Amino acid sequence: MKNSRNARRYAEALYDVAKDHAHEDQIERELLTVRQVFSAPSDLVDFLQDPKQWMNRARIIKSTFMTFSSELVKLLLIMVEDHAEQDVPGMVDHYTYLINEKRGVGVGKVYSVTYLTPHQLEDIEAHFAKGFGYERLALQNEIDESVIGGFKVVINNRVYDVSLKAKLEDVKRKFVPLYKR
């Protein structure tokens, strides 16, 4: 994402308009398709970025996304006119973040040495939901062998680290003088 500030502004504008028209959920579903189209290398993105085709951009967006909500199509037209096609995936991510915040759902990742069982993941989600200020958490499990043991939870740039690696680093900080680190 080239300019995350612009992506956030576009997402917040779309969210406000969607909320006013009570289309938040519909637009969220549509944005999943939009993310796929704009994330992967595609002929559409190449076409939109071709300076020779600037007159046809609006027509192509309207015809490609004709079944989508008018709010989303208008935003895509604005983004294409602003040459912000590269910000579309970031806009989708931030819109998803905004709608999850409204629902009280935190989305994040759990890093562990091995994959957690569904029951372990549910236990972690239930345990950390209130601590992170959410009604519910939706966590993805990712493998990170550097944690050595335990796990690390990351939600919206907030980290709760109960990994063996973190504990070893803490012991190192306590026993090794500053000038020898």
Rank of each mutant, 00 (worst) to 15 (best):
N56A: 15
R57K: 14
A58K: 14
A58Y: 05
K62G: 05
K62M: 12
T64A: 13
F65Y: 05
M66V: 11
M66C: 12
M66D: 15
F68E: 11
S69C: 06
S69W: 03
S70G: 10
S70W: 07
E71C: 10
E71D: 11
L72W: 06
L72G: 03
V73E: 04
L76H: 02
L76S: 00
L76W: 04
M79D: 03
V80A: 13
D82E: 13
D82P: 06
H83T: 12
H83N: 15
H83R: 14
A84M: 12
E85L: 07
E85S: 14
Q86A: 12
D87K: 03
V88N: 02
V88P: 05
P89C: 12
P89L: 10
M91H: 06
M91L: 08
V92S: 10
V92R: 11
V92F: 08
D93V: 05
D93E: 13
H94A: 06
Y95E: 10
Y95G: 09
T96P: 04
Y97R: 11
Y97L: 09
N100L: 05
E101C: 08
V105N: 07
V105R: 09
V107K: 13
V107G: 03
G108M: 01
K109G: 01
V110Q: 04
V110Y: 05
Y111D: 05
V113F: 07
V113E: 04
T114S: 13
Y115I: 10
L116Q: 13
T117K: 12
P118G: 11
P118Q: 12
H119E: 15
E122W: 00
E122N: 07
E122I: 03
I124P: 01
I124H: 00
E125H: 06
H127P: 02
H127L: 11
H127V: 03
H127S: 08
A129K: 05
A129C: 09
A129N: 10
K130C: 03
G131C: 00
F132M: 01
F132S: 02
Y134R: 02
R136D: 04
A138E: 15
A138M: 12
A138W: 06
Q140I: 13
Q140F: 09
I143F: 02
I143L: 04
E145Q: 14
E145I: 15
E145H: 12
V147W: 04
V147P: 03
I148E: 02
G149K: 04
G149Y: 05
G150N: 06
G150T: 09
F151M: 10
K152S: 00
V154H: 01
V154A: 00
R158T: 07
R158E: 08
R158G: 00
V159G: 00
V159L: 05
Y160G: 02
